[in-house]
Computed example of a mutant assay.
Amino acid sequence: MPDDTILITGATGFIAQHTIIAALAAGFRVRTAIRSLGRADEVRAYLAHGGAEPGDRLSFVETDLLKDEGWAEAAQGCAYAIHSASSTPSGHYASEDDWIRPAVDGNVRLLRAARAAGVKRVVLTSAFGAIGAGRASPGRPFTEEDWSDLNGNIAPYQKSKTLAERAAWDFIAREGGAMELATVNPTAVLGPALGPDTSHSLMMLKGMIEGQAGQPRIRSCFVDVRDVADLHLRAMTAAAAAGERFLATAGDALWLVDVARIVTERLGDQARRVSTREVPDADMRAAAETDPRARALLPLLGIDLSASSEKARRLLGWQPRPPADAIEAAARSMIEVGIIKA
């Protein structure tokens, strides 16, 4: 199996870059899809920061989620595909459709090209946003059986991930042929940043360490990006993963004030500006009247977003790092690469 060529899309993304590193370390050749070949050297520099010097075992192809060109070339000769490219909350979008169309149409373009190229299995990077958004807590940890409620109070990003994942499963059911699909649905992804252009998940820590005045009353699960990458490879190759969704989450859900305490304990003086004060919901609602960032957090206030990784552990033998280690790695790396001024 190693020395097979696999396609990994979204080469400028946080999860995709760590997945490329993991795939190269496992012996695969990687073809990676990128919106502009002009960023290929930048991606190679990020990978080198993560310890990967792939030489000719890594190649690039230019694709766009909203265009047909390049997808057939990207998939040709690949044994597997990992599709991580999608709209992200760090982007700038004028309308809800700007989120949804690239996510849904891009999934279908990738799947159609993969099927035509004889790819054995596609692993889709979905999100917890396709599982636990727009709805109240079920009174137990969320599992892969749950789906977000599109009629609830759901943000455009979460809506796009839900519709995109459903479109992928529908494609497989209708016209996937022998090709298999698995999805990985991460909770909040932390772990080591490889450079200054990084994921929206890490921005929560940036505000915290740079001294924001308290933490919203939000409770989330967390996972290290290196373990998310590992789960993608397991879902790609394990027979038991075909046709399955896998929540990527580590440990119990943490309130953001708990995260702040972990940062304070692990980073010492570099965390001197971190506040362990919890911001009352009423203050968040008042701030939301003028601050779009605060407004986006309102649906999450006080909601238990606990999620279970039992399925990935049982079926795939996945063993993620503790959340505190992911939090520390993220914070230290963002200081190192200059994202955070501590």
Results as ranks from 00 to 15, higher is better:
Pro2Gln: 06
Asp3Phe: 12
Ile6His: 05
Ile8Ser: 09
Ala11Ser: 10
Gly13Tyr: 06
Gln17Ser: 13
Ile21Lys: 11
Ile21Asp: 10
Ala25Arg: 15
Ala25Val: 15
Ala26Thr: 12
Gly27Leu: 03
Arg31Lys: 15
Arg31Tyr: 15
Thr32Ile: 14
Ile34Ser: 15
Arg35Gly: 08
Gly38Gln: 14
Gly38Thr: 13
Gly38Tyr: 11
Ala40Ile: 15
Val43Asn: 13
Tyr46Gln: 09
Tyr46Ile: 08
Glu53Gln: 05
Gly55Tyr: 04
Asp56Glu: 00
Arg57Lys: 01
Thr63Val: 02
Leu65Met: 02
Leu65Lys: 01
Ile82Tyr: 14
Ala85Asn: 10
Asp97Ile: 04
Ala103Glu: 09
Val104Met: 12
Ala113Ile: 08
Ala114Gly: 06
Arg115Ile: 04
Arg115His: 08
Gly118Gln: 12
Arg121Met: 09
Ala127Leu: 00
Gly129Met: 04
Ile131Glu: 07
Gly132Tyr: 02
Gly132Val: 01
Ala136Trp: 00
Ser137Leu: 04
Phe142Ile: 00
Ser148Phe: 04
Ile154Asp: 02
Pro156Lys: 01
Arg166Asn: 11
Asp170Phe: 04
Glu175Leu: 06
Glu175Pro: 08
Gly177Ala: 09
Leu181Asn: 08
Ala182Lys: 13
Asn185Ser: 06
Thr187Arg: 11
Ala193His: 06
His200Pro: 11
Met204Ile: 15
Ile209Lys: 09
Gly211Pro: 05
Ala213Val: 03
Gln215Thr: 11
Pro216Thr: 10
Arg217Tyr: 13
Arg217Ile: 09
Phe222Met: 07
Phe222Val: 04
Phe222Pro: 06
Val225Leu: 00
Val228Leu: 14
Leu231Glu: 07
Ala235Ile: 04
Ala238Trp: 03
Ala242Lys: 02
Gly243His: 00
Glu244Pro: 05
Arg245Phe: 00
Leu247Ser: 01
Thr249Asp: 03
Ala250Arg: 04
Val257Met: 06
Asp258His: 03
Ala260Tyr: 01
Arg261Thr: 02
Ile262Lys: 11
Ile262Ser: 12
Val263His: 04
Val263Gln: 05
Val274Ser: 07
Arg277Asn: 11
Glu278Ile: 04
Asp281Phe: 01
Asp283Leu: 14
Ala286Glu: 13
Glu289Asp: 12
Arg295Tyr: 01
Ala296Gln: 13
Gly302Thr: 03
Ala307Leu: 02
Ser308Phe: 07
Lys311Trp: 01
Trp318Ser: 08
Arg321Cys: 13
Pro323Trp: 10
Ile327Ala: 09
Glu328Val: 06
Ala329Cys: 11
Ala329Arg: 13
Ala331Lys: 10
Arg332Trp: 06
Ile335His: 15
Val337Asn: 04
Ile339Met: 13
Lys341Trp: 07
